[in-house]
Nucleic acid binder design. Structure first.
Length: 561
RNA sequence: UGGGGAAUCGUCUAAUGGUAGGACAGCGGCCUUUGGAGCCGUAUAUCCAGGUUCGAAUCCUGGUUCCCCAGCCA
């Protein structure tokens, strides 16, 4: 899909344009996407990825992929691998600029020694609990650690022994010496290094002290020559600390800019909650198509171009905001409408016997694959005496605005014939089991030579030729726009939608779908967009519903209720 | 009188002293071999109160509301 509108302005572009004009970074634009490999990427990350890589593209700069791997307890190679897959799948390329904060552990250690020597850092012997108690509260200033004035020599010695592994976890930390009375808690002698005798996914057991985020991030940015270190709002009051390290170390100084993270209706976004859904088996893994993870969206059938379009449309600002899920769906339909091949599938089959059609005759209707894309061509769809239509496409006593099939009414079977319903066959319970219709042989292709019109056009399948398939219909994972809107003693899981997954074991699909590749996307005509699930095997097709088609008939029905 | 941020249609987002614009959602219509897509039209907003100014979403003063921060997480 092409979007010929120029990308919208935002406050970060404005800053960059001003900097380019003033020559602040000599016109250079260099960003980075810095995930911690402790979970799978989600659509909130996608916003950040599109922003950082997008800015680099727009201003002829670069964007690095940098893993913020400073906490070996939570990080795993599995997450590193998935993150790379997801960023690439979204359509972005970091060339050879794949970096890790752990690449800089040596340099970071040297800089820590410099801070100690300059009297800006000290080794503290307080326990974690004591440090918390000494930190004070939001409204009361903190107290200085009794170890704050150790000599530089002692600090150097202790820090070196921390690194050598002489001490247990938690016995010592390295702290910056800033201001225990600061109103900004981040400046109350923040911890720079902690002792962690843990195996790191990349550095193994080379280190047993690990830098904290605040100490590692800005310096990593500096080493990589980043110009704009773009992060989310909650880091706003870390910025003074970000600047403090760079200034005290007297090294190249990137600029941190904060923007509002993405919130989406009917969705939870925090890694903690997503992890909980996975670990408690409330969903089927990180790539469950109901998950807002990139891997889940991929499996659900979201095209990367739709996600990029979405990221552009939501904008970038500093307001806390929650995007209407309907916008995402709009972007999906927009993209899928252009790219997805049309195909016929019946989710809830109703048998139709065309009484005046020859018993053993088979004709092949030429069906357009995608009227939005003539290059997609056509295909042959078999037609015969017994067909399936969608059960909801027939009403025995039609609603006044229902213009599909009803007794005595004529409709078009798309690309095939006009048919007229003559009889309704019911079982002993009064349930409709079959329809008898007649067809007009003059209407092959879907047009009548006499120019008469029909109001309804239905999709259909030749019963003898249809393939069976499993179809998975997905809905919002949560029933409330804000899943955290819960009663006392409840949490977000109380709002989980019991109907978020509905499995249709025996749907019918076109024979052309035989052998459809996992990941390929289709529009089931008049129904929804679907994507072939990886669970598919040669004799068992599985489709995931990506997003329904807009359904104005559903609205009409709702209104009349 | 802890610190840091943010307030514009229902929801996002533009407009940086000069006609409050766009998108999604809504509503109405046209068209249609998808009740899809497309097209046209339409209603709805500057947190409040003062002030400066010919003119204020924008500048000033004072309020109000919301978000973030007390990890040896990021």
């Amino acid at each position: 899909m092409t979007n010929d509108q120029t990308p919208p302005p935002n406050f970060i572009k404005k800053i960059i344009e001003d900097d380019i004009e003033s020559g602040k970074y000599n016109g250079r634009v260099h960003t980075r996407f810095p995930p911690e490999p402790n979970g799978y990427l989600h659509i909130g990350h996608a916003k950040s990825i599109c922003l950082n890589f997008g800015l680099a593209n727009e201003f002829n700069g670069f964007c690095n992929l940098r893993f913020d791997d400073t906490n070996p307890i939570k990080e795993e190679q599995e997450y590193i691998d998935s993150i790379k897959t997801d960023v690439r799948w979204l359509g972005f390329d970091w060339d050879d600029r794949e970096f890790y904060a752990s690449d800089y552990f040596g340099q970071l250690y040297e800089w820590a020694i410099k801070l100690i020597k300059d009297g800006h850092a000290y080794v503290d012997s307080l326990s974690a609990d004591e440090i918390r108690a000494y930190r004070g509260t939001l409204t009361e200033s903190g107290r200085e650690s009794p170890y704050r004035d150790r000599s530089i020599e002692e600090n150097l010695d202790l820090f070196e022994r921390m690194k050598k592994g002489e001490f247990e976890d938690g016995t010592y930390v390295l702290r910056a010496k800033i201001d225990m009375a600061s109103g900004n808690l981040n400046l109350r002698d923040p911890v720079l290094y902690r002792i962690l005798h843990a195996e790191h996914p990349r550095t193994g057991d080379e280190w047993c002290i690990y830098p904290m985020y605040d100490y590692a991030h800005g310096q990593s940015d500096s080493i990589e020559g980043i110009t704009y270190s773009i992060c989310t709002l909650e880091f706003e009051d870390h910025r003074p600390l970000y600047n403090w390290f760079l200034d005290e170390l007297d090294i190249y100084h990137p600029q941190q800019i904060e923007f509002a993270r993405l919130n989406l209706t009917y969705t939870v976004m925090s890694k903690r909650k997503l992890l909980r859904l996975v670990k408690n088996n409330l969903v089927n893994g990180w790539d469950d198509p109901r998950m807002p993870t990139i891997s889940g969206m991929r499996r659900r059938g979201y095209p990367p171009a739709a996600i990029r379009d979405f990221a552009e449309r939501i904008g970038v600002a500093k307001n806390d905001s929650t995007i209407d899920f309907a916008l995402l769906e709009y972007c999906l339909r927009q993209e899928l409408n252009q790219s997805a091949a049309r195909v016929m599938a019946i989710l809830d089959p109703l048998k139709v016997v065309i009484t005046n059609y020859p018993d053993d005759k088979v004709e092949y209707a030429e069906a357009v694959n995608n009227q939005e894309d003539p290059a997609a061509g056509t295909r042959q769809v078999p037609f015969s005496k017994v067909v399936y239509i969608e059960r909801e496409d027939f009403q025995e006593i039609p609603h006044k605005k229902f213009f599909r099939l009803a007794p005595g009414r004529e409709v078009r079977l798309m690309h095939a014939y006009y048919i007229t319903c003559t009889d309704v066959i019911k079982d002993e319970n009064g349930d409709i089991v079959e329809l008898h219709c007649t067809y007009d042989p003059e209407t092959w292709g879907g047009d009548s030579p006499d120019g008469r019109r029909v109001k309804g056009t239905l999709h259909w399948l030749s019963a003898a030729h249809a393939l069976s398939a499993e179809v998975r219909l997905y809905d919002h994972l949560f029933t409330k726009e804000n899943p955290d809107d819960v009663g006392e003693g409840e949490d977000f899981t109380a709002n989980m939608n019991p109907d978020s997954l509905q499995v249709i074991a025996q749907a019918k699909v076109e024979p052309s779908l035989a052998g459809a590749e996992p990941g390929s996307r289709y529009q089931f005509l008049r129904t929804a967009y679907f994507c072939v699930d990886p669970d598919t095997t040669p004799d068992h097709l599985v489709f995931n519903r990506t997003v329904t088609l807009r359904d104005t008939w559903a609205k009409v029905q709702q209104k009349s209720n």
